[in-house]
Design a protein around this nucleic acid. Structure first.
Lengths: 315, 315
DNA sequence: GAAACGTGTGTAACCGATTACACATATAAT
DNA sequence: ATTATATGTGTAATCGGTTACACACGTTTC
């Protein structure tokens, strides 16, 4: 019995003969160890908790896929936790994860506190406190990229649709955008939204066309909003990108399936998930981690929703 | 100790006084029971396994959300398992789930066999054997709905993009479509695809415009393909729906964000997930289940990618 | 030849809950 | 008064693994 355990875990002394016996017995009996019993004794498990603010957000599938692949490659499984934005379910889930002896937690939820239950946490694209581990995209740069792309293309009147300021990433993007626009004499306006839901995106698209008369460029807080604006514009008979150009953020898979193709800033969702899970596993294994923070660079994905680049930007 | 356990689980005799003491102690010590220890003894747990063929499919987020909500409402958490279509990871995951003492499994993967490990399984939108529990949509009806919508609107030459015949649902849809088209003298052609990936969707869209000259209506196997066709058509200068009308399948959230809005058949993904989790929990609790199979009806979602309805359909 | 060491195996304690069972007390029935 | 019944609590076994420890044996080392 102890010998079997030693054979399975390859620690301690086991004779070649005994190991063989164990191996054949395992095959014969189709034995597989009970992870629950293991977990009880070890006070940890082969599972990591995943806390997401709203799974139905189209940005998440790729993220999850990255997480799942990396976790599986390292021998871990993922417990799913979906939290409505704003609810305090996050706490409940953290307790639940603790009750399940999870080895660590990946979280994209604001209020996740790591101190109550002592589990390693890696934040996904949201950073709360200075000493947290996190994998995230450089949103300031993303904002700059988007703004610059617009600036290079005869911007006219610019409308910035900014995400909820409760979301740190949204703030950074805005900072990036403004850092490019402010030094110029481009006219811009900012419209702030409260969520990333499709419903609000549609509503916003309608509103902005009523509220602002002459808009020539839209920098949207994400692809959902960009898509909604494009649809509304086309419905109003405006030509994209001639009359109004729009740029999104995220590069969700659909952005390439609309007409005209949406130019956007690509967030490496899969990679982010993959690296976050890797980082978490390193922490769990107490490997020395090179960096507590991994910053990934967003990328401009040029499609057809922006006008042609203007050669000179002189006044 | 035993009394504490009885107080927590509300079975056996516990004096009012003792119960109070336990309650305050729990609060004072911030005690929460270890689910792993529970699970070890009970040989089951508060977790269900979820097996999906490809999380990045846009149809799944809503499905997962439904599952997660229902599971949570019943006190269960979800372990995620992502399986590449065609790989034999499904088996591995089933073993892994068994090792974790999961209470049951929800699966949307073909080869999931329920016999090796005795856990209740509920199939999601795929049915393998006659005696399985399953929640699925009536795809024959969905096919009929789509075909009828097209027939009502001056079909012209119809192109049917059919999903992989390895997917039972795809077959049913085709059956439904043909059951409507065959009795008429409408001209149609069938183009069969191999997957539900975006890449193949784009490729297919390009191919069909090369291969078939005059197509007036497209019945796509899902929204991805429909969107890809719409984009390609618009790129070629065709007007939707005047020159070519298209109908999708799934009603993924983006279908309402494109221009023109995609008319499609709505699969109640959220509801399906929710009910599947409910059914599974019932099985787990050994409640008497009214029906082993729950068939949900798809619905026609009219938007703007089909032409106006023709009044009379006389020849 | 005795002590030290390396190798291999088995026994028993442990992880944190649940629950069968024994036991104590109070109340009801005979 | 005696026996049954209801109520409450504590002890110990159990779930299925891991591992500290004791022990046995063979080989070096001095």
């Amino acid at each position: 019995m102890a010998t079997v355990s030693r054979a399975l875990n390859k620690n301690g002394y086991v004779s070649e003969e005994a190991r063989k016996k164990v191996e054949t017995a395992i095959k014969d009996l189709k034995y597989y160890p009970n992870e629950v019993a293991r977990s009880l004794f070890q006070k940890t498990s082969k599972m990591i908790g995943l806390l997401l603010p709203d799974i139905s957000n189209p940005y998440f599938p790729l993220l999850m896929k990255g997480i799942e692949e990396s976790a599986r490659a390292n021998g871990y499984s993922v417990i799913l936790g979906n939290v409505e934005e704003g609810s305090d379910l996050g706490e409940n889930y953290m307790t639940l994860f603790a009750q399940q002896n999870v080895a660590g937690v990946l979280s994209a939820v604001e209020g996740t506190l790591s101190h109550e239950h002592a589990m390693p946490i890696v934040m996904l694209d949201r950073v709360l406190e200075e000493d947290d581990f996190a994998v995230y995209t450089n949103d300031v740069k993303g904002g700059k990229l988007a703004a610059q792309a617009v600036m290079d293309r005869d911007p006219g009147n610019v409308l910035i649709i900014a995400g909820p300021k409760s979301v740190p990433g949204a703030i950074d993007r805005l900072i990036g955008i403004l850092s490019v626009l402010n030094p110029t004499d481009v006219k811009y306006q900012i419209y702030e939204t409260n969520s990333y839901t499709i419903e609000e995106a549609e509503e916003t698209a309608k509103n902005i066309f009523m509220k602002y008369k002459r808009i020539n460029s839209v920098i949207a807080s994400n692809d959902l909003y960009a898509l909604a604006v494009m649809k509304e514009a086309q419905q109003k008979g405006l030509h994209i990108p001639r009359d109004i150009q729009v740029i999104g953020y995220d590069d969700i898979p659909f952005s390439q399936l609309v007409y005209p193709g949406l130019t956007t800033i690509s967030q490496p969702a899969f990679k982010l998930g993959y690296q976050a899970a890797d980082l978490l596993v390193s922490r769990i294994r107490k490997n020395k981690v090179e960096e507590k923070r991994i910053k990934l660079d967003p990328k401009l994905i040029l499609r057809d929703s922006l006008r042609e680049k203007t050669e000179s930007e002189e006044k």
